[in-house]
Design a binder for these strands. Structure first.
Lengths: 140, 140
DNA sequence: TATTGTTATACTCTATAACTATA
DNA sequence: TATAGTTATAGAGTATAACAATA
């Protein structure tokens, strides 16, 4: 007797729904800064581990390499990142935050944190930690 | 001392990443049937609570009303749903699964369930249940 | 030969506004 | 006046293929 999936218990549906909501609300919060949620994740990666190649950003963030080009273009034109030469490989460009980029990221992080608190409002701190640790194991 | 968000702990990023992966893998699994993940959720809603209006589908699934029109069009042309008249309101169309639609949904549900099992493979049954219940509280 | 970054392109998804018919 | 469904449209996101430079 096969059980049919239901909206209330389908993990894929709930993940897509919650993920879409997270993106939408973050985009709204970042609107004044001219950034979108994906720019924000690039800044986050660069702030955390400076000097990543675009290839590394692509796999780390799950964004297609061709899309990374466009995102880094945007951030470079806004003066928030530089594309530095790789010491040993002339094909590779290392994406590095500028001083202006660090400031912009800190400001964006304020909005991001508020948005996340709002999203997770129904959960207590232990539940938030549980959710994050479960997600980390399936997000890949 | 403000803590900056990190890729490892940012719930929005992890949700978006996992949600995107769920959609992508479901779309691949459904490809032979000619359905996309959003068609699947419409079928799921109609199977679970038959006779929903398109407006109700829109809020239940978090899909814009204009997009619901296109999805129901697709499903209707494929013979999987009907648009029935609402007894008391001639503006409203009730979306109902046909016999063919029920069969198609059961088959799609097989693929959906396999995809979900694959996605949740790193989690044991209790962890899956926890994740689903936490997601349900923030998915809205 | 393989890989990095890039360009071009097509398709899907999301979002908004405007219209119609009904309420 | 407000709501359900519809159409049109624009913008953002996703995905693929092909190319130049370099490994």
């Amino acid at each position: 007797m096969p059980e049919l999936p239901s909206l209330d218990t389908d993990a894929g549906f709930l993940l897509a729904r919650a993920g879409g909501r997270a993106i939408r609300e973050l985009n709204r919060a970042l609107e004044p800064s001219g950034l979108r949620s994906r720019h924000y994740t690039v800044l986050m990666a660069a702030a955390e581990r400076g000097g990543l190649s675009q290839r590394e950003l692509s796999t780390l963030l799950g964004i297609d390499p061709s899309a990374v080009v466009a995102l880094v273009d945007d951030l470079e034109h806004a003066g928030l990142v530089r594309r530095d030469a790789h010491p040993g490989d002339r094909r590779t460009r290392l994406v590095v935050l500028t001083g202006k980029g660090k400031t912009a990221f800190r400001r964006a992080a304020d909005h991001g944190t508020k948005t996340e608190n709002n999203l997770l409002a129904p959960l207590d701190p232990a539940e938030r930690a549980t959710l994050i640790s479960l997600l980390r194991r399936i997000a890949r």
